[in-house]
């Protein structure tokens, strides 16, 4: 704790005290996340197919939130590492404690071929930032096998690709017509 400025006696200058609190949380990753993380390290993107509605979730949570039924290891399938940008924005980073981003970055939603759920918050590379658009065909940019790790996984969120994939790059193919992904937009 550090006293920043002022004193209680100066009526117009309130005393401001900074009280920095550090709390540490130790997460134990759920089995679904461990299998997904191991898949990324092995170069695979694992999805979970709901036994009831057949939707395929990338970064499966162990249950389908639409049907509220459990999805176990038997529901797991490989999903392609190519897909389409269904929506995006460009973020001008705001500064705060812990923020390491300083330059504007693309924040895109990517629908992988064969998946029903989009992956939000993906970076798009290999194309100028202002040329990013909906419908863009993209392919995962994998880390070299020796650099893959358990980065990005936690018990508060699912589907982080950071352990194996740094982002997506344009495949050079023509754009996907909107009708083909409209249902999944953003």
């Amino acid at each position: 704790m550090t006293t920043e400025k002022g004193s209680a006696s100066a009526a117009d200058e309130p005393m401001v005290v900074d009280d920095f609190v550090a709390l540490t949380y130790h997460d134990r990753l759920p089995p679904e996340t461990v299998r997904f993380a191991d898949g990324l390290i092995a170069g695979r993107i694992i999805g979970q197919r709901c036994p009831q509605c057949r939707r395929v979730y990338v970064g499966g949570k162990g249950f389908c939130a639409m049907c509220v039924v459990v999805m176990g290891p038997e529901s797991e399938i490989d999903v392609a590492d190519v897909g389409v940008v269904t929506g995006y924005t460009i973020i001008t980073p705001v500064r705060y404690y812990g923020q390491t981003k300083t330059e504007p970055f693309v924040y895109a939603s990517v629908l992988l071929d064969g998946a029903s759920s989009v992956l939000g918050g993906q970076e798009i590379t290999g194309i100028a930032i202002d040329a990013v658009r909906e419908g863009l065909r993209v392919r995962a940019v994998w880390k070299p096998p020796e650099a893959r790790n358990y980065e990005g996984h936690s018990t508060r969120g699912w589907g982080s690709l950071a352990g194996g994939i740094v982002g997506f790059e344009w495949t050079g193919e023509p754009d996907v017509p909107r009708e083909q992904y409209k249902e999944f937009a953003v």
């Binding site: 990753l29 759920p30 089995p31 162990g62 249950f63 509220v68 018990t155």
Partner: peptide, 12 residues
């Protein structure tokens, strides 16, 4: 004392 399951999985 400690579980691997996420809080949503416990709720489910």
């Amino acid at each position: 004392a400690s579980t691997d399951l996420t809080e949503p999985q416990l709720c489910l």
